[in-house]
Amino acid sequence: MTKVTKVLKNIPLYIWILMFTIVPLLMILVYAVFEFRPDGVHFTLEHLKNVITNQDYLRALKDSLLYALVSTVICLLIGYPLAYILSRLSDKMRGFLSMLLLLPMWMNFIIRTYAMLSLIDEEGIVTKLSALFGGTMLKGTKAAIIIGMVYNFLPFLVLPIYTSMMKIDKSLIEAAQDLGGNSYHVFKGVVLPLTVPGIVSGITMVFVPCVTTFVIPQLMANNVWTIGKLIEYKFVSNASADGVDPDGGALSFILMIIVFISMSIFNLIDKDDESAGGMTL
């Protein structure tokens, strides 16, 4: 095969990647710093500046990060023990329970959120039960958002941790026990360090969707604004016919930066751990 035909064969792939991956992402930057008005295109940093100084936007940004952080921590607290218990079961039981864990993940995200909502809204069973004890409705509170996030993303955290636990060589645990470690020592010295990659990928799977989600705050507590909901509002609910809301472009750009930063932080932790693990073994 000649070199020319070889290169020609590759070109469609490059065009594909350029057209549908790189250019759209660049569009976010373009709409963040350019304004498209009938009288022409104007370069402006006004909207970016506006987004990082406007109190409402900043509060939404802070809230999104806070909700995501709290939900991720709760997911980890619930999910880690669950993964640990599952990984030590007999084969048959493990298959059955991991299928039970997977099943909700296969349901559509919207249906899942709606199912949770119908427990805690005006007509919901949880609301009625709590009313018996003088409680109030959960829908519309901050707790409702956290519940929605934990409910939706818990399986996504358990699964990678569970997988990394299954990969642990049983003889390592036995060796630790033979050397006189009690179950606490075995856990702290063997199981926990070896599951760090699973924990990190689990956290990424929960944290990033939590920061960016707009459906959960919209359904669970519509008075709370998060950055995802702001963007949805600017682009869809309140979209103007004559073009893109420039603040929306700037907000998307900020969100993209947040996503990339959190991904690279998690990536970094993961890499560090791999090299450290190699040293100790």
Partner: peptide, 11 residues
């Protein structure tokens, strides 16, 4: 994140 992909394609 899905929302970033979605917005980038929308734009």
């Amino acid at each position: 994140a899905d929302i970033v992909t979605g917005i980038s394609l929308l734009l």
